[in-house]
Amino acid sequence: MTRDEKIKNILSNYWRGKERIIVAEYLRALYRNNTELIETFEMYGNRPNQVVRNFIECSYAKANFGFKNIPLDNHGWAKFEWVELEKTQPTKDNEIRLGKGKNGNWTFGLNISYGGAAGSSW
């Protein structure tokens, strides 16, 4: 994507929460043509939405599980490996996962379905 396409893409999206802070920094770097900062952001993906969401995911993973690099899958999304120790499905569409990162820290994940089109992942 060109610089102008990235700016247009960022401005056409609705960002919320932590995303707004990251988008503001990325947008400032693009407007000022700060190539060093742009390269740093673009280590997290090829498109602005990947950059922002992977940045958040990677920051969380680095802080809590000691990951050093940014593993991207073949679609450009952050993919961290962790050992899943237990998966419980209280109902057909809901699940709770318990796992341990490579550095020994524990984590959990929830996938919740309220039926229809509503749901949540955490």
Rank of each mutant, 00 (worst) to 15 (best):
M1C: 03
M1Y: 01
T2I: 09
T2N: 12
R3T: 11
R3M: 13
D4Q: 09
E5P: 00
E5C: 02
K6C: 07
K6F: 04
S12D: 05
N13Y: 15
N13D: 09
Y14F: 14
Y14H: 14
W15E: 01
W15V: 00
E19N: 05
E19L: 06
R20D: 08
R20W: 07
R20H: 09
R20I: 14
I21E: 02
E25N: 06
E25Q: 06
A29D: 11
L30F: 05
R32V: 05
N33G: 08
N33A: 13
N34D: 15
T35C: 05
T35H: 08
L37D: 04
L37G: 02
L37C: 03
L37N: 04
E42M: 02
E42R: 02
M43P: 07
Y44R: 00
G45W: 01
G45Y: 03
N46Q: 06
N46R: 05
N46I: 04
N46A: 05
P48W: 02
N49V: 05
Q50I: 01
V52D: 00
V52K: 02
V52Y: 01
R53F: 07
R53C: 08
R53S: 10
N54R: 04
N54A: 04
F55M: 06
C58L: 06
Y60F: 11
A61Y: 09
N64P: 09
N64A: 12
N64V: 10
F65H: 15
F65M: 11
F67K: 01
P71Y: 07
L72D: 11
L72C: 12
N74G: 08
H75K: 13
H75V: 11
G76F: 10
G76I: 09
G76Q: 07
W77H: 06
A78R: 02
A78W: 00
A78F: 01
A78C: 04
A78D: 00
E81F: 12
W82M: 14
V83K: 13
V83P: 06
L85D: 09
L85H: 13
T88S: 12
Q89F: 12
K92I: 14
D93Q: 14
N94F: 14
N94P: 10
N94H: 11
E95F: 14
I96M: 06
L98G: 10
G101K: 05
K102L: 13
G104V: 09
W106V: 13
F108S: 12
F108P: 07
F108Y: 15
G109F: 10
L110K: 11
L110W: 12
I112N: 00
S113A: 15
S113I: 14
Y114G: 04
Y114S: 03
Y114Q: 03
G116P: 03
G119Q: 02
